[in-house]
Design a protein around this nucleic acid. Structure first.
Lengths: 351, 351
DNA sequence: TTGTAAGCGTTATCAG
DNA sequence: CTGATAACGCTTACAA
């Protein structure tokens, strides 16, 4: 009946209690600037009137803080989050961000860069985490100038990032496979071929058309190539980074006359698919065919897939801290990695 | 060098062009309220000065619109999003929300209800989607009074929701299994037992202690029970809704003297785990043991698991539309479901 | 078609 | 310890 339609604000509280708005505000954000008694009293009547803390909008406008951390990713949600790696990263990020009392805003980049930029500017965020470095959005630089902290998973000269040494990861796999005598390798990368072709032989020069320079994928391949100078390395593009894509791409790679002795998937999710493809063809991984991945997701351990371990959840946490805490000391972090040898790799079979 | 430290705002534009702030504002939000010439001119200098549209904070405070849709879920991100059902729901939601130019804010409910309410009030959102109805948060009602639209996946007398008939879903499975002669059924539910026990025999009365009334799980079990009057139905709690939990719970259920002839997992994700458990024990699903799930996620089709199909992505889309569009006509939607019989269910084996 | 003025709810600054 | 005042950047009547 007599319901007030006007929202309960700090003013309402102030009037009711006969104190100033400032004092009410301080009761929330600067507890040490007023007596405990008054503070308790304010909080009590707040509860009574159904007032639940400073409005996000008001605070955001005045102080510039939104307590929101944007997470920018490319491709559909279904693709982004069906990869356990993404989930783990997001879990760590979300965990850390929560510790600062903030939340994560999902920002899916539209296909058009223009639209992406608009979306980025319209978002009320304190920080932006760039999940995939598929493109260099110009809008990101504008955001930075607006005071939004940017944290990336890809290294750069200045700027904040948390990453691993992807080239080294590639070298670890390369060394391992070279020692096992492999000389016919198919690399399975996510993403579509830029050249419009399904696969091509790798050489480190002139890759710009096909692999984005500086992506984790191109780094991993380069590392691999460095340690396998005598091998023929073919790169196949799988599409989205999901298990099924890996299965399809590996299937194609295996259904040829002179099939490879090793498949290097650039992520465990793709490696799982390669494992499926091998199974379907009656090939035993580690004996008839070596399969390796990257990232060390739980299923990789379960199936016994050789991979490069990286602390993904911790990566997410660190990214979150960099994003939310401008005073966090280390702002360019390279996390340790480790080669985990499991049953899926073994000596190259003799012909 | 001469970089301006003050942010570029509508005022900057207005001064530079000698027009009023209102006109600049209109150039963005009400294009028909000024001449095309002037508008183009404004947009041009905007680009020149590096102004990228109205600030989210200012707009939010003044108009009350944030273009953000909150998504409230319980449990960790890693659990919430490792279930394909959640991903599909989120994908649909995100897709629809994007069509309105908005984004999704991930709101993970802390364990304490008090903290959850605080978080909810502090979030700048136009709408809130309640992903899991584990608890009835009192803060949700407050949000509604503040003008935030609430959309749920669980039906209620008033309010907006998109759901399926869970009791009917249970009945479809029950009828199917009863016809096949099953009389010993173990139901695998997610969540922890409230009674502190691992499992218990079901009867529709006095379940309040163990199953939250009105959840999709209790509805599904009730439906099952209605169509299997002669069966002994035991309910086991698996913990989080992940495959591994299903494996463990099913394993325990199978490692007893008088093992059940059918396992009814309350979600496909749990059913996949039950499938794993059966495999490990040399039991062939559909012959030695019937396994069924709910939701029809892709892997269920892959493994041939009998299940109840529901259009999950479409559900997410509809939820998104209800959330973002107050004028969307149908505000209480029950989506169709369908029994999908696959190889994982078959006649109850004779003892 | 354009401009004026008021105020959304909060916090920062400075004065008592 | 407490309060008055002035923004923050924008939209929305209403006036010209």
């Amino acid at each position: 009946m007599g319901e007030k339609l006007t929202a309960v604000t700090m003013k309402t509280l102030a009037n009711k209690l006969g104190v100033s708005i400032t004092t009410v505000s301080n009761a929330y954000s600067k507890p040490d600037r007023l007596s405990t008694d008054l503070r308790d009293q304010i909080l009590a009547t707040a509860k009574e009137l159904g007032y639940c803390g400073p409005s996000a909008a008001g605070r955001a406008l005045r102080s510039g803080k939104t307590d929101v951390c944007g997470f920018l990713f490319h491709g559909g949600v279904s693709h982004a989050f069906s990869d356990p790696y993404s989930i783990m990263l997001l879990a760590g990020l979300s965990e850390a961000v929560e510790e600062y009392g903030a939340s994560v805003l999902l920002l899916r980049a539209p296909a058009a860069e223009e639209a992406t930029n608009q979306m980025l500017q319209r978002a009320a965020i304190d920080a932006l985490v760039v999940g995939s470095a598929e493109r260099q959005e110009s809008g990101i630089e504008q955001l930075r100038q607006r005071g939004v902290r940017i944290v990336s998973t890809a290294p750069s000269a200045d700027g904040d990032w948390v990453t691993i040494n992807d080239a080294k990861a590639g070298r670890l796999i390369g060394k391992h496979l070279a020692r096992l005598g492999h000389r016919q390798v198919v690399v399975i990368a996510s993403g579509a071929s830029k050249g419009g072709m399904e696969s091509f032989d790798y050489s480190p020069d002139g890759m710009d058309d096909r692999l984005f320079a500086g992506t984790y994928e191109s780094e991993r391949i380069r590392g691999l190539w460095e340690k396998m100078p005598d091998a023929r390395i073919t790169v196949a593009f799988a599409g989205h980074c999901i298990r099924e894509s890996g299965r399809r791409a590996a299937g194609q790679a295996l259904d040829v006359q002179d099939r490879p002795t090793a498949i290097v998937a650039l992520s465990d999710t793709l490696a799982l698919g390669a494992w499926d493809a091998a199974q379907e063809r009656g090939l035993t991984p580690g004996r008839d065919l070596s399969i390796s991945g990257f990232d060390d997701i739980p299923d990789a351990r379960f199936l016994g897939i050789t991979t490069i371990h990286q602390p993904v959840t911790e990566k997410g946490r660190l990214i979150g801290r960099l994003a939310m805490d401008p005073d966090y000391p280390d702002r360019q972090i390279t996390l340790p990695i480790e080669l985990i040898v499991r049953a899926s790799t073994g000596p190259a079979p003799k012909n």
